[in-house]
Amino acid sequence: MNDTSIIALYWKRDERAVKETDKKYGKLCYRLADNILKRREDAEECVNDTYQRVWDSIPDDRPDHFTAYICQIVKRLAISRYRHDTASKRRYDAYLPYDELAEVVSGKDDPEDAHIIAEMSDAISDWLMTESKRSRIMFVRRYWYYDTAEQIADMLHISPATVWSTLSRMRKRLKEYLQKEGYDI
């Protein structure tokens, strides 16, 4: 079933909407949640919460990009849960690839940065569009979905070494691009 039809079911308050959503996006949602939470039970619960959240928000929402819409909800819920569960002992977000991203950013906490995040997201999107489709997918799967190199390699039928080298080159190019665009990161 296509996204438009699924959304139509939500608007009709037809419970098949949830079933169809699970059928189409269940695995994707689970994987994203699991990449963050690293626990099967938590990930499953997070996916169920996501369906509830989608049910509550459509209507009134009518998302143009349903996949991104649902993934954003999963991700937000999973991160929120992760931070709640690890609040007392967390020093850093374990799902984030710090070592890799440290190559791109300075690490300094500048309050001004918060204001430029939205703008920079657009810049990163623009830059991604200049990359090849395969590289783009690798980047997004690694840094948006938090997939491991092995998972990405498996999906794209390539070796993990290829994923690592491609991502490494992309990080360098991204840094250069952002600096060229005037971002002091």
Binding site: A68, D93, L101, K108, A118, L128, V140, R141, M155
Partner: peptide, 28 residues
């Protein structure tokens, strides 16, 4: 910029890019 902040910027990329990457299936 910190890694967490950078992660937030990546999180805000356009939905088309998120969807494109979602449309890849693991090897069976």
């Amino acid at each position: 910029m910190t890694v967490e902040m950078f992660d937030n910027t990546v999180n805000g990329i356009r939905p088309e890019l998120i969807e494109e990457a979602a449309d890849i299936r693991p090897t069976t």
